[in-house]
C-alpha cells in the first residue's frame, strides 16, 4: 500500500523529456531573433553599399537630367521634402502639444478617452487613405496638386506619433512643478508653457524627431496630393519673386502652391524606369532616406536612453 501513485510513470524519463523540450524550445526562440535580424542587416547593408556607389556631389545640387541622360540630381526632391515636412511640423506639432496638454489636464473625461481612441485610429489608418482624404478636401477644392496639400497630409501622418509621445512625456513631469507655478500666481497657460513644457521638452523633441522620420519616409499620401514636379526649385522661385518685387508672403505662397516632389516619391518613380541611370539614382535616394530616417531614430532613442540614465543616477 505504500506504493506511489506515480509508480507507472518513469519519473526520470519524464523529467528528462521536459528538460529536453525546454532546451529545444528556448533555442528555437533564440533562432527566431536571428531570423529577424537577417532581413534588417541584409536590407541595410545592401542599400548602403549599392546606394553609396551612385552617390555623387551632383546628386544633391542639380535638378534631374532628361530621361535617359546621365547625370543630374534630386535637388527638387530634397527641397520638396524639406518644404512639406516643415509645413507638416508647423501644423502637427502645436496641435499635438495642445491636445496633449488637454489630456494632461483632463485625463479621464469622455473627450479625453475619445481623443486617445481617435489618435490610435489615426495612427492605424493606412497612409494611402489619408492621401485620398487630402485629395478630396484640398486638391479637388484648389483644383491643382500642391506642396501645401502634401504638407497637410504629412501633418496628419505626424500628428498621432507626436501626440502619443508628448502625452507620455508630459505625464512624467512631477505635478508639483505645475502646482508650484500656480501657487505663485501664474495663470494655467503660463504654468503649462513656461514650467511644464520646458521640463518635458527634451522628451517631446524625441517624439518630434520620430514624427519627422515617419513623415520623411512616407510616399503613399503624396502620390495624389503633391504629385511630383521635376522642376521644383525654391532658389528659382525666390529669385523670380524678387525680380518682380513680390512680397515675401506671395513668394511663400508660390512655393506652397506648386506641385512638389519628395525623396520617397522620386524613389518610387525612378525604381521602375527602364533607364539604368534612374535606377541607380533610386538606390542613391534610398541610401539618403535610410541614413536620414535611421539616423533620426537612433539619435532620438540614444538621447532618450542617455537622459533616463542621467535622471536615475543624479
Amino acid at each position: 500500500m505504500s506504493q506511489s501513485i506515480y509508480e507507472h510513470i518513469d519519473l526520470r524519463r519524464h523529467y528528462r523529456r521536459r528538460q529536453r523540450t525546454n532546451r529545444i524550445m528556448l533555442a528555437l526562440t533564440g533562432l527566431t531573433v536571428a531570423v529577424a535580424v537577417v532581413p534588417l542587416v541584409w536590407i541595410t547593408v545592401y542599400v548602403l553599399l549599392q546606394g553609396g556607389k551612385y552617390l555623387t556631389p551632383d546628386f544633391f545640387i542639380h535638378l534631374p537630367a532628361p530621361m535617359g541622360v546621365a547625370g543630374g540630381g534630386v535637388l527638387h526632391a530634397i527641397e520638396g521634402s524639406a518644404v512639406m515636412v516643415l509645413l507638416a511640423s508647423a501644423i502637427a506639432i502645436p496641435l499635438a502639444l495642445l491636445a496633449a496638454f488637454y489630456l494632461l489636464a483632463r485625463p479621464n473625461t469622455g473627450l479625453a478617452h475619445t481623443l486617445r481612441f481617435s489618435t490610435d485610429m489615426l495612427a492605424g489608418t493606412p497612409s494611402i487613405v489619408i492621401g485620398l482624404f487630402g485629395y478630396a478636401v484640398i486638391v479637388t477644392v484648389q483644383k491643382h496638386f500642391s506642396a501645401f496639400a502634401g504638407g497637410m497630409v504629412l501633418a496628419i501622418i505626424m500628428l498621432p506619433v507626436v501626440l502619443r509621445s508628448a502625452e507620455e512625456m508630459l505625464k512624467l513631469v512631477p505635478p508639483e512643478l505645475r502646482e508650484g507655478a500656480l501657487a505663485m500666481g501664474a495663470p494655467e497657460w503660463l504654468a503649462a508653457l513656461k514650467v511644464v513644457l520646458p521640463a518635458a521638452a527634451e522628451g517631446i523633441i524625441t517624439g518630434v524627431m520620430l514624427g519627422i522620420a515617419r513623415a520623411v519616409g512616407e510616399t503613399a499620401p503624396l502620390l495624389f496630393t503633391a504629385l511630383g514636379n521635376d522642376h521644383y526649385e525654391i532658389g528659382k522661385i525666390i529669385s523670380a519673386g524678387l525680380r518682380y518685387h513680390q512680397s515675401p508672403g506671395k513668394i511663400l505662397g508660390t512655393i506652397f502652391a506648386q506641385p512638389a516632389d519628395a525623396l520617397p516619391l522620386t524613389l518610387w518613380k525612378y525604381a521602375q524606369q527602364p533607364y539604368q541611370e534612374r535606377v541607380h539614382q533610386a538606390w542613391a535616394v534610398a541610401f539618403v532616406l535610410m541614413l536620414f530616417v535611421l539616423g533620426l531614430n537612433i539619435a532620438a532613442r540614444a538621447w532618450l536612453a542617455y537622459r533616463r540614465r542621467k535622471m536615475f543616477t543624479s
Partner: peptide
C-alpha cells in the same frame, strides 16, 4: 522605421 519604398526597391 525603414521607409516602405526602400523595402519595395530592395
Amino acid at each position: 522605421a525603414i521607409p516602405s519604398v526602400v523595402y519595395g526597391l530592395w
